[in-house]
Computed example of a mutant assay.
Amino acid sequence: MTKSDQEIGEVVAVLRGAVPQRDIAERMTNRGFKWTQGTVSSVEKGERSLKLTEGAVLAEILGTDVQSLIADEEAARLERDFRAGQTALTDARQEIQRATRKFIAAQGYLRRIRSSLSEDELALLDGDLRADPVEIAAREKERSQDAILGSDQMINDGMAEYITVPPRLGRRLRPKSLEGTPERRLL
């Protein structure tokens, strides 16, 4: 099935997500194409066709492949959302790792100064000094899972308040909803 310039432009806009058109134009210019923000806008509106060489570089800049540029808009949205979720998980894991290191370092500091604290201060710290970051994380995970499972609206909204679309896009998807019909297949 042949895609129109407008359909390809709509997919480019979806895959671009929150990345400014100016940034895409700058990256294309850095790769040897004379693109401006207006060029990106024209491509997204379907007013300008993409040359194959431009499409290959643009797809690379968007973190995908040329086939994604000719996929339908819904498939592009699913791909973008999937990559956003991957990025959010990676960021959250890194935050947990940093927080755990800080927690353990703070415990070590408190243990070192323990001898200079009053009985009242020691009583306040006792629980913190015995706390295990793994147990804290497990309790928080359980609370979070209960909140997520109990909130269909948050799931249906794609957890939009927690996930931002990354500028670099990653792996391709083949959503089950699009597998059935050959003309809508991503691969």
Rank of each mutant, 00 (worst) to 15 (best):
residue 152 D to C: 06
residue 159 M to G: 03
residue 145 Q to C: 05
residue 169 L to Y: 07
residue 163 I to G: 03
residue 156 N to T: 08
residue 146 D to M: 11
residue 169 L to C: 11
residue 167 P to R: 10
residue 163 I to Y: 01
residue 158 G to H: 01
residue 152 D to K: 13
residue 172 R to N: 13
residue 142 E to W: 03
residue 164 T to M: 01
residue 147 A to F: 06
residue 182 P to A: 09
residue 149 L to C: 05
residue 145 Q to E: 07
residue 147 A to M: 06
residue 156 N to Y: 09
residue 155 I to V: 15
residue 162 Y to P: 00
residue 156 N to M: 12
residue 147 A to I: 01
residue 141 K to C: 03
residue 155 I to D: 06
residue 180 G to C: 10
residue 152 D to H: 10
residue 146 D to S: 12
residue 147 A to P: 00
residue 151 S to K: 01
residue 176 K to M: 06
residue 159 M to A: 10
residue 154 M to S: 04
residue 143 R to I: 06
residue 162 Y to S: 04
residue 173 L to C: 10
residue 149 L to E: 04
residue 165 V to Y: 08
residue 173 L to A: 04
residue 144 S to W: 14
residue 142 E to M: 06
residue 179 E to C: 07
residue 156 N to P: 02
residue 153 Q to M: 04
residue 175 P to D: 09
residue 173 L to R: 02
residue 177 S to D: 10
residue 145 Q to L: 15
residue 166 P to K: 05
residue 176 K to G: 09
residue 182 P to T: 06
residue 164 T to V: 07
residue 157 D to E: 11
residue 166 P to I: 08
residue 173 L to F: 00
residue 181 T to F: 09
residue 178 L to N: 04
residue 152 D to P: 15
residue 174 R to S: 15
residue 152 D to M: 11
residue 162 Y to W: 09
residue 158 G to Q: 00
residue 169 L to I: 15
residue 141 K to M: 08
residue 167 P to W: 08
residue 156 N to C: 08
residue 181 T to I: 12
residue 142 E to A: 13
residue 143 R to N: 11
residue 161 E to C: 02
residue 146 D to A: 14
residue 175 P to E: 12
residue 178 L to H: 13
residue 147 A to H: 04
residue 175 P to T: 13
residue 175 P to W: 09
residue 149 L to T: 03
residue 145 Q to M: 11
residue 157 D to P: 02
residue 150 G to R: 02
residue 182 P to W: 08
residue 168 R to V: 08
residue 168 R to W: 04
residue 172 R to P: 12
residue 172 R to Q: 14
residue 151 S to M: 03
residue 143 R to G: 05
residue 179 E to V: 05
residue 167 P to S: 09
residue 153 Q to G: 06
residue 154 M to I: 05
residue 181 T to V: 12
residue 175 P to A: 15
residue 169 L to Q: 11
residue 165 V to G: 00
residue 162 Y to Q: 07
residue 152 D to V: 06
residue 179 E to G: 03
residue 168 R to Q: 11
residue 141 K to F: 08
residue 154 M to Q: 05
residue 164 T to W: 02
residue 182 P to R: 10
residue 178 L to G: 02
residue 140 E to D: 08
residue 171 R to E: 13
residue 144 S to A: 15
residue 162 Y to G: 01
